[in-house]
Lab assay of single mutants.
Amino acid sequence: MDPFVVLVLCLSCLLLLSIWRQSSGRGKLPPGPTPLPVIGNILQIDIKDVSKSLTNLSKIYGPVFTLYFGLERMVVLHGYEVVKEALIDLGEEFSGRGHFPLAERANRGFGIVFSNGKRWKEIRRFSLMTLRNFGMGKRSIEDRVQEEARCLVEELRKTKASPCDPTFILGCAPCNVICSIIFQKRFDYKDQQFLNLMEKLNENIRIVSTPWIQICNNFPTIIDYFPGTHNKLLKNLAFMESDILEKVKEHQESMDINNPRDFIDCFLIKMEKEKQNQQSEFTIENLVITAADLLGAGTETTSTTLRYALLLLLKHPEVTAKVQEEIERVIGRNRSPCMQDRGHMPYTDAVVHEVQRYIDLIPTSLPHAVTCDVKFRNYLIPKGTTILTSLTSVLHDNKEFPNPEMFDPRHFLDEGGNFKKSNYFMPFSAGKRICVGEGLARMELFLFLTFILQNFNLKSLIDPKDLDTTPVVNGFASVPPFYQLCFIPV
């Protein structure tokens, strides 16, 4: 058959498939802009700032609406009420993970971030239990974070109060905490193996944040037939998995079943207990991918939040002064901060919360999916439909947070200066898919920041009023603009 005829037939089939998918069930789905064949609503979305586009569309179609990214149908949730109703009140029905062709290629359905069903539930339950087990290797997770915080302070001392970009050092600290939990080992910041790991993690975040990856996920045929950065992403992930597998083999040879040292040991012990169960989800494949998931999810998000926190503290020296006064009063100079201190430091706690609220790190979270046909607000959402959640619409709700575009710790303080919780605080998402490392991340943010401010004054290279804190939105995360500062020993 003539190649031209084959091409026309293929394009015609794709067009018909697109029209059929977009028209099927439209009477039951939430409203939304009319999609174009094949490309859907992509032309109506700013790929570099999806969150802003969703906010604009919500003003037209309401808090629940339908979009098509290519052939992929998505239902968008915008605003606290619908997000709570879906992710919390109907948590089980909305607990699936959205379709990610690239991740599915890399992870093969294993791990904790992109798995679904029984596998996801069992691996998540085990990971939560293990991360909360403060007795691994007779050292609590808090001990590990405190140790890394001391190392971080010593690295900052080496800058000798000269101007520096904190990106690298602030990236090393949370990565080392995860390494300590998974591998029972922290690395020197100049260790070549550690630097290679950091390089792969950072490069992957840069790649994932590009519009090209959005295109690959919406048109998965590209993955096999086109060159691009997605190939580098898959190569980096394969490198990390190979490295983790080597460490798993080392653990198998040296493990003491009665004295687990780290996450890998705990997983291997669980595998041993379930070795007679042919349906067990505790396999080497799941261990390797879960460890890679924890490394990827637990490094860049925390380091970016820390980097943004220091920029905001530079911009608002009056806030920094209040935090340091609270540190001096509650902790002093002669001991290290600990998590028990947080309950006695409402202002510092409010500042950490406000940093996370203000920066809105992951504006749309990772997409969910419905696990069955769901009736939601008089609409029928078919099983498997991807759910896109606007966390921006919750964290920047102007009824809950007056002047949401302003950095103001009073958003989390009552009139008496006591810490005030808010149900709208969802930087880790909400419901059954809430970030498994939430507790660890909150511990790291509090301890790293208090250790830094206990030991250093922060000095800006320019007038604080002239510092730009506008986030650089890159399609996946909101990151701070480049800046330098000086760490002046107190």
Rank of each mutant, 00 (worst) to 15 (best):
P3R: 02
F4T: 14
V6Y: 15
S12P: 09
S12Y: 08
W20I: 13
R26M: 09
G32M: 00
K48G: 10
S51P: 12
P63T: 06
G70E: 00
L71D: 12
R73E: 06
V76R: 01
L77H: 00
L77I: 10
E85A: 09
I88D: 11
G91K: 06
F94S: 02
R97A: 03
R105C: 05
I112L: 14
V113S: 15
N116I: 04
K118L: 11
R125M: 10
F126G: 01
S127P: 01
T130I: 09
R132C: 10
F134G: 13
M136G: 12
K138A: 13
I141C: 08
E142M: 07
R144A: 13
A149L: 03
E155D: 06
L156P: 00
L156E: 00
R157T: 11
K158N: 15
D165W: 01
F168C: 06
P174R: 01
C175R: 03
I181G: 01
R186D: 02
D188H: 10
K190M: 14
Q193M: 13
S209Y: 11
P211R: 11
D224E: 14
Y225E: 04
G228W: 08
T229V: 14
T229R: 12
M240T: 07
M240N: 02
S242F: 06
K249V: 10
Q252P: 02
I257V: 13
D262R: 01
F263P: 01
D265T: 03
L268W: 03
K270F: 08
K273E: 14
S280Y: 05
L287M: 07
T290A: 12
L294A: 02
L294D: 01
G296T: 14
T302V: 13
T320F: 06
K322C: 08
V323W: 01
E328I: 13
I331W: 05
G332P: 03
M339V: 15
G343K: 09
T348F: 04
A350Y: 02
V355T: 06
I362F: 12
P363K: 03
T364V: 14
H368Y: 04
H368F: 04
V370N: 05
V370I: 07
V370H: 00
C372Y: 08
C372D: 10
D373A: 06
F376V: 07
F376T: 00
P382L: 04
G384N: 08
G384T: 04
L388W: 10
T392S: 14
T392E: 06
V394G: 03
N403L: 09
E405A: 09
M406N: 13
M406R: 13
F407T: 00
P409L: 03
P409W: 02
H411S: 02
H411M: 01
D414V: 06
G416R: 15
N418L: 11
F419N: 00
K420M: 03
F428K: 00
F428P: 01
S429C: 06
G431S: 02
R433K: 04
R433A: 03
V436L: 11
E438K: 09
M443H: 12
L445P: 03
L449G: 02
T469K: 07
P481R: 14
Y483H: 06
Q484R: 15
Q484H: 10
